[in-house]
């Protein structure tokens, strides 16, 4: 009960601040200090958003982006879990994963773009590679930390019960390190969004399948500032929905229910 109250309170203060921001925005826009092409007013932005929802374009592009992100996140998560499990079990692998992370973690995906174009072209595969690259390293860091924080007795109990390696990972190590894994996924999700939008803004088909980043870029080249804000609004909305609903609900049902945090 107490939890629900604090949740409601959080929503209330958040709403309050959003309203404050909107009022400030509209006041500045109405004061006509800046030309409309720089600072459009809220109704104009709402109309641009409405138009692109009605035409179906923004929904289509958003769907495309979300599908790509989901794929990238899943591949990245699977690879990160695999590499982290290997790293905590063998010293040699630990060295390898550690070195790889040290090399690749500081490299922004966009800096690799020229190479990625030459190696993987400019299609879906290239964008997936950039997403996987940007999510896998922070996830590995989080997951290995989580695995290492598990008291050895958990694993030993599992071994005593005669569990095999896969079940030890699946039933003991992942649940026991779930808070770490979860924060890894959270970071991965945020990183994936950024990587995806930047990659899409740099290349993407002019046609149907360009994604949300492409949508924003297209509004930019045709100087449709309200359209740019419409695209940004959708990104923010998805970010809030995923954070407040998906992650919060998952947490509620797992680590909070188990009393881990």
């Amino acid at each position: 009960m107490k939890n629900k109250d604090s949740y409601g309170k959080k929503t209330k203060t958040r709403l309050l601040w959003i309203i404050v921001f909107l009022v400030i925005w509209e006041t500045i826009a109405q004061s006509r200090t800046f030309p409309e092409a720089i600072f459009p007013s809220l109704p104009v932005i709402a109309k641009a958003l409405g138009d692109s929802v009605v035409s179906g374009e923004i929904l289509l592009q958003t769907g495309w982006s979300l599908a790509l992100i989901l794929q990238g996140l899943l591949v990245g998560l699977a690879a990160a879990v695999l590499l982290s499990s290997l790293a905590v079990r063998s010293r040699i692998f630990d060295g390898l994963v550690d070195t790889l992370t040290a090399i690749a973690h500081p490299l922004p995906g966009i800096a690799l773009l020229p190479l990625i174009i030459i190696w993987f072209g400019t299609g879906t595969l290239a964008i997936l590679v950039i997403i996987v690259h940007s999510v896998i390293w922070p996830m590995i860091l989080n997951i290995t930390t989580g695995f290492r924080a598990i008291p050895p007795i958990y694993k030993e109990t599992g071994l005593n019960l005669g569990l095999n390696q896969v079940r030890i990972i699946k039933d003991i190590m992942i649940p026991a390190s779930l808070p770490y894994v979860l924060s890894g996924i959270r970071i991965g999700w945020a990183r994936a969004w950024r990587a995806l939008i930047s990659a899409e803004m740099i290349f993407g088909a002019v046609g149907l399948k360009g994604g949300l980043g492409w949508y924003i870029f297209k509004q930019r080249v045709f100087m449709d500032t309200p359209g740019i804000f419409a695209g940004l609004f959708v990104i923010v909305l998805i970010g809030i929905v995923v954070e407040d609903c998906v992650f919060a609900a998952f947490e509620e049902r797992t680590v909070k229910k188990w009393g881990m945090i």
Binding site: L113, P114, I117, F120, T122, G204, A205, G207, L208
Partner: peptide, 21 residues
Amino acid sequence: DNLLVTLDHPDGMNALLARRE
């Protein structure tokens, strides 16, 4: 229009010479 990719001139040249997509 469905076939277009936006690349600046240097990247476009690399992509063309790479003969991939």
